[in-house]
Amino acid sequence: TYYTVKSGDTANKIAAQYGVSVANLRSWNGISGDLIFVGQKLIVKKG
């Protein structure tokens, strides 16, 4: 599943929404920190 980042989103918020850990969200998308951008497409695997 892909999720498009919206204004006000955070890695924590997206992870919680899908029931996954922030560490997994980072791993699936090659993100090292919490910096995400509006319009960015993230791979999300439901927990």
Rank of each mutant, 00 (worst) to 15 (best):
T1I: 15
T1P: 08
Y2F: 11
Y2R: 06
Y2W: 13
Y2H: 08
Y2T: 09
Y3F: 03
T4N: 05
V5E: 01
V5M: 02
V5I: 05
V5Y: 02
V5A: 06
K6T: 08
K6Y: 03
K6G: 06
K6I: 09
S7W: 13
D9S: 01
D9L: 00
D9I: 01
D9G: 00
D9H: 02
T10F: 03
T10H: 04
T10Y: 04
T10P: 02
T10I: 04
T10G: 03
A11M: 15
A11G: 04
A11C: 15
A11K: 03
N12E: 15
N12K: 14
N12L: 15
K13H: 09
K13M: 13
K13Y: 09
I14K: 00
A15V: 02
A15R: 01
A15S: 06
A16T: 10
A16L: 12
A16C: 13
A16H: 10
A16K: 12
Q17C: 11
Q17V: 11
Q17P: 00
Y18R: 02
G19L: 07
V20I: 15
V20A: 05
V20N: 01
V20R: 00
S21E: 07
S21D: 09
S21G: 05
V22Y: 04
V22L: 13
A23S: 11
A23C: 10
A23L: 08
A23V: 10
A23F: 08
A23Q: 12
L25T: 00
L25Y: 00
R26M: 15
R26E: 15
R26T: 11
R26H: 09
S27Y: 12
W28F: 03
W28Y: 04
W28S: 02
N29G: 03
N29H: 01
N29S: 02
N29D: 01
G30V: 07
G30I: 06
I31A: 04
I31R: 02
S32K: 14
S32D: 13
S32T: 14
G33P: 07
G33E: 10
G33S: 10
G33D: 12
G33Y: 06
D34F: 08
L35H: 12
L35E: 15
I36W: 06
I36N: 01
I36E: 02
I36Y: 05
I36G: 02
F37E: 10
F37R: 09
F37S: 09
F37H: 11
F37N: 08
V38D: 05
G39F: 05
Q40C: 07
Q40Y: 05
Q40D: 06
Q40S: 06
Q40W: 05
K41H: 10
L42K: 01
L42Y: 01
L42R: 00
L42C: 04
V44I: 14
V44C: 03
K45S: 14
K45C: 10
K45F: 14
G47Q: 12
G47M: 12
